[in-house]
Design a protein around this nucleic acid. Structure first.
Length: 426
RNA sequence: CGGGGUGUGGCGCAGUUGGCUAGCGCGCCGCGUUUGGGACGCGGAGGUCGAAGGUUCGAGUCCUUUCACCCCGACCA
């Protein structure tokens, strides 16, 4: 894409109402726009990053056996009254609204904006699950959740409206459930590994709430994390402060002196639901012996937006964003210095050749001063920067510089293409 | 929800004890000079000072109400 056609502009200064580094940089770079507290819009490059993250998650969940669906955000209250989660005492994160009834402002039935989807999906599955032969099954979706948080904070890390990948497992028995649960753990680890957070992300034992003894979180260790976790670096395992006790440590076979206290961002959460919803909503199946039993359920969530924010926060340096290659909106930021015909032609040609070879390029074809374009390249955080100028062309070359390494090299076009095309496809 | 803070052109800010056509930097438009780390000159455009009400000869400034935003805490299936 040509920079001159990209409608966003970068900003030199962060907005006054953002303190979180992720939001400051993403706004300065024109990746996102703040709509209101805890609500953000994705602009072109922000959406590219988000989509790349979601594609990686989708690939891994499909490998796990997930079947993608899309459920509605508008939720009728009856299913939630049946499950006991409509009233504020049970769930204080609701955004509730009403339908119209007739003309004017007559208010009709109450509705809620979905903050999770166990109820909706459980009811749907009643139509399709009757026998043990129909199990197990693993529907999932990417969908917007609405949660009326008392206080949003930390930029994109805690918002009131956010996309969530939520996967649900429906199993006939404990062994079937447990086998999938363990596979899901590995799948999640693979996702965080692929987006670049593997080294800092820990499987974490956390509260199971009203559903089970424990749930499992994936906590990425980072200073701005709002959770406190105790990590065992050797075992790549952590314990959330909310369940941290001598008894729990004993159960898990962990020694207190091997654990280190850290802040973490909960980038994923998986937990057994047992028969909490199948019993409440009547999702039963007939087993091999002809007996009617409630389905065993599990829930598996990842917030792609929170993941984007965590990646932004984790890798950024004092000059701006640093995207891992797999999520970067473009692989190359191409800077053209000066607009003399020779330089312009060389830059145009390079842009075309790289694009044709499948290397994504953000081509800064504006007639800006070099310093401004370099600053933008750093702020926007593409993995590679290529410069074409009279200076580079004197040596019949192109300057290639990595976003993370300080050194740069002037190389000829053949080598440049070879390097970038190979790296981009590998 | 408790405590603290902030709202002034697109962005960042100044504006004293109430006083004149509300300023500055960035950005934007025009012309010219510039071109390897956020250039410079000249000339421009752009503001219901968050909103409503009040006090006053006069309100960005004082009073009341209200809305929004940020931070700390509590909360976070």
């Amino acid at each position: 894409m040509r920079r001159s056609q990209l409608f966003i502009k970068t900003r030199r200064e962060a907005p006054a109402d953002e303190v979180a580094k992720n939001a400051q940089l993403l706004i300065r770079g024109g990746y996102i726009h703040k709509e209101m507290a805890g609500v953000y819009d994705y602009l072109p490059m922000g959406l590219m990053v988000l989509n790349k993250v979601m594609d990686i998650i989708r690939e891994e969940i499909n490998k796990l056996g997930g079947q993608e669906i899309y459920l509605s955000a508008l939720q009728p209250k009856d299913n939630w009254e049946t499950s006991g989660r409509w009233h504020e005492e049970a769930a204080d994160v609701w955004f509730k609204t009403r339908m119209h009834s007739g003309k004017g402002f007559h208010l009709g039935p109450e509705l809620g904006l979905g903050w999770t989807h166990e109820e909706a999906l459980t009811v749907i599955m009643k139509q399709f699950v009757n026998s043990y032969k129909d199990l197990p099954v693993y529907p999932y979706q990417f969908q917007t959740k609405f949660r009326n948080e008392l206080r949003s904070k930390s930029g994109l890390l805690r918002t009131r409206e956010f996309i969530m990948k939520d996967l649900y497992s429906f199993s006939a028995n404990q062994a079937q459930h447990d086998a999938f649960y363990e596979k899901a753990k590995k799948s999640y680890a693979a996702i965080f590994e692929r987006v670049g957070l593997g080294a800092d992300t820990y499987l974490t034992v956390a509260s199971g709430g009203s559903f089970s003894k424990f749930s499992h979180e994936f906590q990425t260790v980072i200073d701005v994390g709002e959770d406190t976790v105790y990590v065992h670096e050797g075992k790549k395992l952590a314990v959330n402060k909310e369940v941290y006790s001598d008894k729990v440590l004993n159960d898990l076979g962990l020694q207190k002196d091997e654990l280190v206290e850290k802040n973490g961002v909960e980038v994923g959460n998986i937990f057994p639901l047992g028969t909490r919803f199948s019993e409440a909503l009547g999702l039963n199946f007939t087993d091999e012996q002809g007996q009617l039993k409630p389905v065993l359920m599990g829930c598996y969530g990842i917030g792609p937006g929170r993941l984007v924010a965590t990646i932004a926060e984790k890798f950024a340096d004092d000059k701006g964003l640093v995207w891992p290659e797999v999520v970067a909106p473009f692989y190359v930021y191409l800077v053209r210095i000066g607009n003399g015909s020779m330089v312009a032609e060389a830059a145009d040609n390079l842009y075309k050749e790289l694009s044709d070879a499948g290397v994504s390029v953000l081509y800064d074809d504006r007639d800006e001063r070099p310093g401004e374009m370099f600053a933008d390249a750093d702020l926007l955080g593409m993995p590679n920067r290529v410069v074409v100028s009279e200076k580079t062309m004197e040596t019949n070359g192109y300057e290639l510089k990595s976003r993370t390494k300080g050194d740069s090299a002037i190389i000829d076009k053949e080598n440049l293409l070879k390097t970038l095309v190979k790296a981009a496809s590998g």
